[in-house]
């Protein structure tokens, strides 16, 4: 076990995670002020533009960072059977699903005042929904009653396939005609200063929140992994005890 793993899975609160947690909280308060009060309204979208400051960060952090952790964890697990990366992949997927749900909810709430509808089976929305369902499937595989090694291997394969789907999400606005606008931060984007700053702050804040959640979710996975090992040890010990007493019985 690497030293990073030892630190991450250590006692449930450490100086490092407390500092990270405090930074994430302060950053969140600033994001709320920036997003809801200090940043200007947009000329067409009016205040609905404010949803972008949580929508885009949820998408960047959830879809790329969190599911990226799942991808890396899955690949490393398949190559090296590393328990650390197997648990990391699981932790990333759970947080990613939460953020992916935020993307769809905030997108729908933005769609109603802007497009005129909450939901459209637009390529971007459809592919993002497919992503959510695939990773819910990943979490479902994680809960299946299977041999732990078989389960981890199946989950890892799904973790890699599901990430490939994200390339479709990324390119969906270019490949097909739909309602969703192009990339928010791209060559053609025109965004005024404080709006851009608020958006960047949102990405930073969500990254801090994600890092904090990932560390804690990893710890939980590690504890569960340890508990399973403990109960296995107990079972073996109990089996041995039985065996010994039955031998004793025969001797009498």
């Amino acid at each position: 076990m690497s030293s990073i793993a030892r630190k991450l899975a250590g006692p449930s609160s450490s100086r490092g995670t407390r500092i990270l947690g405090a930074l994430a909280l302060v950053s969140t308060v600033l994001l709320l002020l920036l997003g809801l009060i200090w940043s200007p309204r947009e000329v067409d979208q009016a205040d609905a533009v404010r949803l972008m400051y949580v929508h885009v960060p949820s998408a960047v952090v959830g879809l790329y960072f969190a599911f990226g952790v799942t991808l890396v964890g899955s690949i490393v697990y398949l190559r090296k059977q590393s328990d650390f990366w197997d648990l990391m992949a699981h932790a990333g997927a759970e947080i990613g699903v939460l953020f992916c749900a935020f993307v769809l909810v905030t997108g729908a709430l933005w769609g109603r005042p802007t497009w005129g509808v909450y939901w459209e089976w637009d390529p971007r929305i459809t592919s993002t929904t497919v992503t959510l369902v695939l990773y819910l499937g990943y979490l479902a595989v994680r809960r299946m009653d299977l041999d732990p090694v078989v389960r981890s291997r199946r989950a890892a394969i799904l973790g890699i396939i599901s990430f490939a789907n994200l390339l479709i999400v990324k390119q969906s606005v270019e490949w097909w005609r739909g309602l969703h606008q192009g990339s928010t931060v791209g060559i053609d984007t025109q965004m005024d200063g404080l709006m851009f700053f608020t958006l960047a702050w949102g990405v930073l804040t969500f990254t801090l929140i994600f890092a904090w959640l990932l560390m804690h979710r990893f710890r939980l996975a590690w504890y569960e992994h340890q508990a399973a090992a403990v109960s296995l040890d107990d079972a073996i010990a109990a089996r041995r005890g039985e065996h010994r007493s039955s031998l004793a019985g025969e001797a009498i």
Partner: peptide, 25 residues
């Protein structure tokens, strides 16, 4: 039977001094 407004990727600050804004809101 349905109109969807397709917003592009431009985000322009609303200037409070702009005349047309005060009219509709």
């Amino acid at each position: 039977s349905q109109i969807l407004v397709k917003h592009d990727e431009s985000y322009v600050e609303d200037n409070p001094n702009r005349v047309d804004y005060n009219l509709d809101t």
